[in-house]
C-alpha cells in the first residue's frame, strides 16, 4: 500500500458513492485520486463535489498508481469493473449486489481467489454498531437456539426514482428484489453462519405504476439448519415515513427474542407547512458506511480477510435470483437446482 491510501471510484451511479467518498475524507491517510463515470455529467458533478479528477477512460484512472477502487457503478457493470480492477491488482470495495447473474458471480469468486488482493462486499450491516451488537447477543447464547428471523429493509418509494438506472432492468438486473434482498439475506447468513437452501417469493402489484420493475415482495427462506427467515425489501415507504427506509429484524430463539430497529436513533422533525404535517426522523446513530470503509483500509493494511467477501456476494446473488425464479414458477426454489 502507498503511504497514503489511494482510492479511485469506478462508477458513481449508486448514491452510496457519495457516502463512501465522505467516509474516505474523514479517515486519516486516505486520498480519493479520481473517478471514472460513463455518464460524464454525473462524473463531473461528483468530481466537483469532492474536488477530484474525472477521467475519460477506465485505464486512465487505473494508471494512477491506485491501491484500491470502490465500485459503485450500475449493477450490470460491476462484473466488468471488477475484472478490470483485478487485472490491475487493485483491492476492491464493491457495492451490492455483486453481479446480476450467477455465472458472473462465480467468475468473480474464482478470479479473486487467484489474486492477492482484498475483495470486500458493501454489506454495510456487518459494520453497523446495532447489528453487530445483535450478532454478539446471538453468539452469547442468550436467545438459546434461533428459530425465526423476520426482517424488513424497506425503502422510500421516491429514492429509486432519483437515479433512472435503478428501474432500468438491463442496468439494474431487477427492482426491489435485486436491490434489497441482499442486506437482510446477508445479515441472516452472518447471524446463523449457515446457508439458505430454499427460497419462496411473492411479488405484489406495484405501488408505483409508472415503473416497469417490481417494487414490492415478500421472500421466505429456509436455512440448512431449518431456521426460517422472512425478507421484505420493498420500495413502498412514503414520504415522511421512516425518512429513507429501515433495517429491522425480529429474532426468535428458544429462550428469548430480540427486536432490532437499526436506524431508530432519531430526533423527530415536524414540518410547519400544514397542521397535519407528518413527522420525519433526523438520524443521529452510528455511521456504518464510515466503519465499513475504515475496515476496508484496515484489512488491506493488516492483510486481514474482510468481514464480507466475494463468497458472501455470490450467496446474495444466488438468493435474489432464486427469488425471481420462485416468483415466476409460483413454487419454492431449492438453491442447488438453479
Amino acid at each position: 500500500m502507498n503511504a497514503t491510501f489511494r482510492v479511485g471510484f469506478l462508477g458513481v451511479a449508486h448514491f452510496h458513492a457519495e457516502s463512501y467518498a465522505k467516509a474516505l475524507k474523514k479517515i486519516p491517510g486516505c486520498e480519493i485520486v479520481g473517478v471514472y463515470e460513463e455518464d460524464t455529467a454525473l462524473g463531473k458533478r461528483f468530481g466537483e463535489e469532492f474536488k477530484i479528477e474525472c477521467y475519460r477512460s477506465i485505464s486512465e484512472l487505473l494508471d494512477k498508481n491506485l491501491d484500491a477502487v470502490i465500485i459503485t457503478s450500475e449493477n450490470s457493470k460491476h462484473h466488468e469493473h471488477i475484472v478490470q480492477a483485478l487485472d490491475n491488482d487493485l483491492h476492491i470495495l464493491c457495492e451490492k449486489p455483486m453481479t446480476i447473474n450467477i455465472r458472473d458471480a462465480e467468475d468473480v469468486v474464482s478470479r479473486v481467489s487467484k489474486k492477492g488482493v482484498k475483495f470486500q462486499m458493501c454489506y454495510v450491516m456487518r459494520y453497523h454498531t446495532v447489528s453487530i451488537l445483535v450478532k454478539e447477543l446471538i453468539d452469547s447464547g442468550i436467545l438459546g437456539k434461533p428459530i425465526l428471523m423476520v426482517g424488513t429493509n424497506k425503502l422510500n418509494r421516491a429514492l429509486p426514482l432519483l437515479r433512472n438506472w435503478f428501474t432500468n432492468l438491463s442496468l439494474s438486473g431487477g427492482g426491489a428484489v435485486m436491490d434489497h434482498t441482499v442486506h437482510l439475506a446477508d445479515l441472516m447468513r452472518w447471524y446463523t453462519e449457515d446457508e439458505v437452501v430454499e427460497v419462496y417469493t411473492e411479488i405484489g402489484k406495484n405501488v408505483n405504476k409508472a415503473i416497469s420493475v417490481e417494487d414490492n415482495f415478500f421472500t421466505t427462506v429456509r436455512f440448512g439448519s431449518g431456521l426460517i427467515g422472512h425478507i421484505d425489501g420493498s420500495w413502498t415507504y412514503a414520504s415522511g415515513f421512516y425518512t429513507w427506509g429501515d433495517v429491522t429484524m425480529e429474532i426468535i430463539g428458544t429462550d428469548g427474542a430480540i427486536l432490532m430497529d437499526a436506524f431508530r436513533q432519531n430526533v423527530y422533525l415536524i414540518g410547519d407547512k400544514h397542521p397535519g404535517d407528518r413527522l420525519s426522523w433526523s438520524y443521529y446513530g452510528c455511521d456504518p458506511d464510515l466503519e465499513m470503509v475504515r475496515d476496508f483500509k484496515r484489512c488491506i493494511q493488516e492483510d486481514k480477510p474482510p468481514r464480507a467477501t466475494a463468497k458472501d456476494g455470490l450467496e446474495g446473488v444466488r438468493i435474489s435470483l432464486a427469488s425471481y425464479e420462485s416468483s415466476k414458477r409460483g413454487e419454492p426454489v431449492q438453491l442447488h437446482q438453479l
Binding site: I147, Y200, E202, F218, T220, I252, T254
Partner: peptide, 30 residues
Amino acid sequence: VYAKITRNVNSDSSKYDIAVINIRYGDGLI
C-alpha cells in the same frame, strides 16, 4: 397461500408456535 409454521420454539413439543404466512390475492395484493 405459502406458510411456514415453526414448532417447538419452547420446550413443549405439542405446540404450533409461530406462523409466517404469505397470501397472494387475485388482484395482485400480497
